[in-house]
């Protein structure tokens, strides 16, 4: 069973600028992991998540909605364990896969084939599993002989196909997605949609941040709305004005 359980979670970012910290303070901070310095100096902190509690279980497809800067991406990154909580507890159970930024980790000097295996392993798959992605991604991307060419020779659309293909090849328990749907040409979008639906079906939990009502109502059975870092209302897509 997979779950994501947040209890009274707050996440704060300090806004650093070169002038805001003395060398000594920074060294103390690095040495102590920020425990000593936090709150005792003039660093401006932004509360990206403010006392957020919820519980997500198997079968939940959660859409995150809210304005830019409402905390959607921060929440996803906190779920993924990239950001750590300032207060409260965040617990997750299950293998997590993130689709946040399609290009992250792509090595443009390498060929498409080499990148499939490399990225697969980067996302946590074993070598054999990553190699087994190849035929599937070959077929999905329809890049043909271009997969033998270095990725820096690709057009933006081709790069999207490749990175979307790899990112959606890893099968997780918990799938976290941040605004990456709707890339590429119309024909590709149709295939991407099918592939995404299959991936979402195979995951136990899916959390998706999007500004598009269509996408949210298509993929999600629950919605969490955020305003200024606060969870203002949980519910279902139909019951809510989103």
């Amino acid at each position: 069973m997979a779950f994501i359980k947040f209890e009274n979670v707050s996440v704060e970012y300090p806004i650093y600028s070169a002038g805001s910290m003395s060398l000594r303070n920074t060294l103390v901070k690095v040495g102590t992991g920020g425990v000593v310095q936090r709150g005792t100096n003039n660093i401006i902190t932004v509360k990206a998540l403010d006392n957020v509690s919820f519980s997500i279980q198997d079968g939940d497809r959660v859409g995150l909605v809210g304005h830019n800067g409402a905390g959607k991406s921060t929440l996803l990154r906190t779920m993924a364990g990239i950001y750590s909580v300032t207060q409260g507890t965040a617990a997750t159970e299950g293998k997590i896969s993130t689709i946040f930024d399609l290009g992250a980790g792509l090595n443009t000097e390498l060929s498409g084939y080499e990148n499939i295996v490399r990225m697969g392993m980067f996302f946590g798959a074993s070598k054999n599993t990553a190699e087994s992605f190849v035929p599937d991604i070959e077929e999905f991307t329809q890049l043909g002989d271009f997969l033998k060419m270095p990725v820096h020779t690709y057009s933006a659309g081709m790069m999207t196909r490749l990175s979307f293909g790899v990112a959606t090849a890893v099968k997780p328990d918990i799938l976290l997605i941040d605004e990456v749907l709707g890339a590429g040409d119309a024909e590709f979008q149709q295939r991407a949609k099918v592939r995404m639906e299959n991936l979402i079906d195979s995951a136990k939990i899916m959390v998706l941040a999007s500004h598009s009502d269509d996408i949210i109502s298509h993929y999600c059975n629950k919605v969490m709305k955020f305003e200024h870092g606060r969870l203002v209302s949980p519910g279902s897509p139909k019951s809510m004005e989103i």
Binding site: P14, Y16, V30, G33, G34, Y83, S84
Partner: peptide, 13 residues
């Protein structure tokens, strides 16, 4: 030790 303790702050910066 430093790397682990500073890890969360590193991501912020």
């Amino acid at each position: 030790v430093v790397f682990r303790r500073a890890g969360p702050d590193m991501v912020d910066v």
